[in-house]
Write a protein that binds this DNA or RNA. Structure first.
Lengths: 240, 240
DNA sequence: ACCTGAACACCGTTCAAGT
DNA sequence: ACCTGAACACCGTTCAAGT
């Protein structure tokens, strides 16, 4: 958390340059995954020596921090913030949807987020909102902490787990890969794996990513609602 | 999936040897994380040249496959298997609990699992059971596929997200790290982050990991129950 | 069948030096 | 303040060769 202010003392021009480096690094991760990002490759894109980057970032971990920050900053928490007319559960759904919306354009970044939610400024803002809403829903502070941090990770996992997310990006190559994946599932014994072979299409590729993410959010919200009514510490009726 | 049978044609003695390599690799991952596992390090533990391992495994990815397989094999699916007297939801809970029980001793392996659930034999068995139970609960095959694969990943994320899971293993070193983490959260402004500062203890370290995991499973099962009653394709009442 | 040695093409990072 | 060059200690992996 001491690193929350890690870019606080920089000059405007310098911050811009650091921001440009992060932007380029994020583009590389989007295109080729986290493993595709190397200091040397990134330096090459700027036609600069690899060591030049070490003036802007202490090490690679700090560069990855910057990428995670950038994505978490895109989580729009302004929607219905503290609107007392809206139920806490509806507001929570809005927060989770905002997180999905921010991460979906950068699925490869998902793996970077869990360890950084409680150490980056925008991650802390997201966690604070989530915990506060759960407290409003009647969860004790420690239960809200456990449930809230998990909810955030579960939403990140929702993006990572989208069927077909591991397929290549492009048009024809993606179709080919999807077909191969589908065929490999259909090659399984329908006697041993009836459910999987029956759902090979849906497992290989997402017919509607929007519907998939909506299903996941619905499930998580229903889950919170379910245990809230069981475990709430106060007895005031839950607002709908 | 063609790799499901990747170790089928081996001799007993050879399989044993491969199994010993995987066992040692898993121990390294448990102790030092996935990044701590290198071919050269592993070879050193066997007092053998790094290249010796390449006779047993095509490449590092296949070694990681073996580690993932090993953990997924520990998922005990025999409990109440297809017991018609038990509701599908109770059985689903049992499956998710079995997955938690298998992964908890190897939290660092969690990151290896998502991409391998539908490509490893024990992962496919787990997915098949999950999808079949959801179908029994009234979900259409494609919805069951989306929800089921996500549920598995959500449970894996539950283990990864355990508060304090990133702390060092040992006794005193762990206490020190937990105290630092707690202090860094308490250093935040209580005006801006009231919920986080109030729950610093629970966020830094899990008071009761058992209770944490139970909460997560309760939430997921409640979520499935909640959307099942809304979206089920058949109208027969859900068995309790 | 099983293992070795040398070599290749990479990594992140340190350190001293430049401007 | 910002960047470079050389070097270090690592990687995974190929390939030809040993037994």
């Amino acid at each position: 958390v001491q690193d929350v202010v890690r870019s606080a003392g920089r000059q405007p021009k310098e911050r811009l340059r650091s921001a440009a480096i992060v932007a380029r690094a994020l583009a590389i991760v989007d295109a080729e995954g986290v493993d595709g990002l190397t200091i040397r490759r990134l330096a090459q894109d700027f036609a600069v020596s690899p060591m030049a980057l070490y003036w802007h970032f202490k090490d690679k971990a700090q560069l990855l921090d910057g990428i995670a920050d950038r994505v978490l900053e895109e989580v729009d928490l302004r929607r219905e913030a503290s609107d007392e007319a809206v139920s806490w559960l509806t507001e929570l759904r809005g927060v989770l949807e905002a997180l999905v919306a921010a991460v979906r354009p950068h699925p490869a970044v998902a793996t970077l987020l869990p360890s950084r939610v409680l150490t980056s400024e925008p991650g802390l803002l997201l966690a604070e909102r989530t915990l506060a809403l759960l407290a409003r829903g009647g969860f004790a502070a420690d239960r809200a902490a456990e449930l809230g941090t998990y909810l955030i990770e579960a939403v990140v996992a929702l993006v990572s787990a989208e069927p077909g997310r591991d397929l290549p990006a492009g048009g024809e190559a993606r179709e080919d890969a999807a077909r191969v994946k589908r065929a490999s599932l259909l090659a399984l014994s329908p006697r041993r794996f009836p459910a999987i072979t029956a759902a090979a299409d849906a497992l290989a590729e997402c017919a509607s990513p929007d519907a998939y993410h909506a299903l996941g959010i619905d499930m998580l919200i229903a889950g919170v609602e379910g245990i809230a009514s069981r475990t709430s510490t106060n007895s005031k009726p839950v607002r709908r």
